[in-house]
Write a protein that binds this DNA or RNA. Sequence first.
DNA 1: TAGGATTTGTGCGTATGTATT
DNA 2: TAATACATACGCACAAATCCT
Lengths: 231, 231
Amino acid sequence: MSTDPVRLSEQQRKFTQMYQALRTRICLLDYAPGQRLSEVTLAEEFGVSRTPLRRVLGRLESEGLLKSVQSVGTIVTDVDIEELTQTYQLRMELAEMIGRLSPVEVTPDLVERFRSILRRCDELVRTPDPRRFAQVNMDFLNVLLDLTENEPFREISERLYYRTTRIWIKSIARMDLAEEMQIFRREVADVLSAVEIGALDAVGHIRRSHIAMSFTRLRQGKAREEMQVSA
Amino acid sequence: MSTDPVRLSEQQRKFTQMYQALRTRICLLDYAPGQRLSEVTLAEEFGVSRTPLRRVLGRLESEGLLKSVQSVGTIVTDVDIEELTQTYQLRMELAEMIGRLSPVEVTPDLVERFRSILRRCDELVRTPDPRRFAQVNMDFLNVLLDLTENEPFREISERLYYRTTRIWIKSIARMDLAEEMQIFRREVADVLSAVEIGALDAVGHIRRSHIAMSFTRLRQGKAREEMQVSA
DNA sequence: TAGGATTTGTGCGTATGTATT
DNA sequence: TAATACATACGCACAAATCCT
């Protein structure tokens, strides 16, 4: 009688597919901030009419990743320094909560997923690459969010991450990439150590400090850029 | 050259108007959880076609207040006890942050807005009424959010509030309403005292404890209801 | 079991508004 | 300054799916 809740309807699958594809492209900088997207082109690519595609664009707009302007186009948003600062401050505070909000029991499978991330970090240290880094960083976030069962917390953390991560990635590509890869590898290694002994509160503290330091470096990098631009 | 950012386009105004109207109706229980809404009826009421209305419904769906089901209708969501618990836990932690995230300077105007809320509480204590209580509670939240300039924090706090407040209101209507009015009045009075001396960190602590106690009472009330139902 | 009524989802043509030449 | 090109916003008709008789 009732449909299997695990099996989503075709329209939902299609929506999710388009949504994740576009979000990934935006966060991996395949679509740069300021770039204009075409509804008709994207609709053709995904094999749907403009209507369902616009639904997806509307969702991405509500999350601050796109902005539709009448008669102009659908534009990938940029993030100004003020909003970046506020978002990072909030993410810092949120990250620390993870050990307090419905932490899951650490399974061997979960540990293995962190180890897998660490191995990919090792590759990145050997051959740095901004795009692959962005991908690993995204996957790292997803494993981290699986440390808690608090769904609203997961939603919000994900939302805030996607809001600003591409700005960080963009900035990193202009900084000392090799150094950033080593710093990130160390963060993953620290988190893995904490997860292995089930110390999820420690994970929160590690994350908090790394988010804080990332933002400091990002801000310094941006300041350097602006000096070069004005020079 | 550039358009005045204060003056929104007609479509944006219309969107906001419809969005806030529907959200308010849902949160004031004019639309009860489980109720089915009609796209055509609402579109007619607001004097637009289904297309722009569906945009609004999509936004409310992304915030978890509605759920559109193919061929069935657009249904006001309910919130199960698990999600309610998780949301309240998160809101507790978030509430405490307000003093740490870009607190504003307290102006006489701001204090007056809190005093205004307190006066409306006095009326509520004299003549309790669930719907008017819901309205004052909503306005109280909005003044509270004006204590910080951290926009992502404001967005998220608002989102989480609207997600669950109607369940609380529904529950309160079946509890000791007069007692709840007095408790709420005390919270507002406590917050006002803290605001008057500029102690925004204290506001955070007061809010945290009140959210925690509200949830405890809500859970007890729901437990009592279930016992009556099964009896 | 089947068919009709109803409601959301989709496709497409047109309206509206912006930017550029 | 005006006209033209172009992209999103909107309205409507139809398709698809569910529920009830």
